[in-house]
């Protein structure tokens, strides 16, 4: 089922290469933003350029992976409006699974590879100690980040059952989350930092692990042990958004679109 979807994308090879390139370029321009800020301020939110690069690379990779799989949930409102959701509901496969597999966006690999490149390069440059704990964090952090962003996509998708015309609001937690996660959280105003840690856990994706890996000083309220919070938080978040999604579907069958 999945393989068929992937095949249909690579069929249009020319435009696929263009899309791949566009995704990579998009990721580069986001990086330029980080670069420009640090070009003007040598220390930004308690981090140097190399440390900020670790944050950016890590978050970009995690978001790219999540976007590739879950990015499709952006268009739940379109499926509701066109009635396509009804055709999915009369099939014996969970709705969420059908929506996700409807369009796995291979072109997002463009972003993932740029992120990976910057991540690996900056980790080397920062001379991160490669002990057991360090390696475990380097490998697990992108996966935890992907799970967190994935859950945020599902949460934003669920909200669309209530806000059919206002699907934009969900961007606050998905694309807003990506934006915040790509920057050193020390640069955020306190209320923004608190919101994007305890409500939308974007700062836990990249900033805290990167700071612990590179030995940057953490700002309040972060502690070094929180670098390992990624996976447990992702699990907790998935439990919550799972309920939210079910409530959304129930709302749809209750109200009838």
């Amino acid at each position: 089922m999945l393989s068929a979807r992937l095949r249909s994308q690579v069929v249009y090879r020319g435009s696929f290469a263009g899309d791949l390139l566009a995704q990579a370029l998009l990721s580069v321009t986001e990086f330029v933003e980080v670069y420009v800020l640090l070009h003007n301020a040598p220390v930004f939110g308690g981090m140097t350029l190399v440390q900020a690069c670790v944050v950016y690379g890590l978050s970009s990779m995690a978001f790219g992976l999540a976007d590739m799989v879950f990015g499709q949930l952006d268009t739940v409102n379109v499926a509701i409006r066109t009635g396509q959701l009804e055709t999915l509901l009369v099939r014996p496969v969970p709705l969420l699974l059908q929506l996700i597999t409807a369009d796995v966006q291979l072109r997002r690999l463009g972003r993932v590879s740029t992120g990976l490149l910057i991540y690996v390069w900056s980790l080397c440059y920062a001379q991160v100690p490669l002990d057991g704990a360090g390696l475990a964090l380097i490998v697990s952090a992108p996966l935890a980040g992907m799970l967190i962003f994935g859950a945020l996509f599902v949460a934003a998708g669920s909200l669309q059952f209530w806000l059919i015309d206002g699907a934009q609001a969900g961007n606050t937690i998905t694309y807003g989350g990506r934006y915040v996660a790509s920057m050193p959280a020390g640069a955020l105003l306190l209320p923004v930092r608190v919101f994007f840690t305890f409500v939308v856990p974007a700062t836990l994706v990249a900033y805290v692990p990167a700071a612990v890996l590179t030995g940057a000083e953490l700002v309040w309220p972060f502690q070094p042990a929180m670098a390992w919070l990624g996976l447990p938080v992702a699990v907790l978040l998935w439990a919550v958004v799972g309920l939210l999604w079910r409530a959304g579907v129930r709302r749809y069958t209750g109200a009838g679109g």
């Binding site: 040598p42 220390v43 939110g45 807003g176 105003l189 923004v192």
Partner: peptide
């Protein structure tokens, strides 16, 4: 309304970043 909410949140994040950069410089 949805666009405005998104706009405000992005505005707060962007203002944070630029203020931090100015302070850092």
């Amino acid at each position: 309304v949805a666009t405005m909410v998104t706009n405000v949140v992005f505005g707060l994040v962007r203002a944070s970043l630029l203020l931090a950069a100015v302070a850092g410089a």
